[in-house]
Amino acid sequence: MDFILHLFTDPANYRLITIVILSIFLGIEVISRVPAVLHTPLMSGANAIHGVVIIGAIIVMGEATDIFSQVLGFLAVVLGTLNVVGGFVVTDRMLEMFDKKKKK
């Protein structure tokens, strides 16, 4: 109960909850009329965007002091970067095909 109370009365938490709710609606609104052709590239693009989790990996690396955390932190940074870089490059390659088609 304390937890719930804290969640909605603490100004910082309340701000976060507001961001979450607005973002949910924004996400729905932004892609609600996407043609089937773009489903795959859009999924891939969204895949790259959630690579933003890399920022968490960098922050936790900044806190890491012992070997265990540093090894895992290093791994997290590598995996997060793979997600971001691979995600954006693969999406670009898919969309490049559509581009070529348009110029013809």
């Binding site: 996400g27 729905i28 609600s32 933003v52």
Partner: peptide
């Protein structure tokens, strides 16, 4: 904030997709 918006956006957009 950027992890939050990025993550939630993908979460909701991904569900719709």
């Amino acid at each position: 904030p950027v992890m939050l918006t990025g993550g939630i956006l993908v979460g909701s957009a991904g569900t719709i997709l």
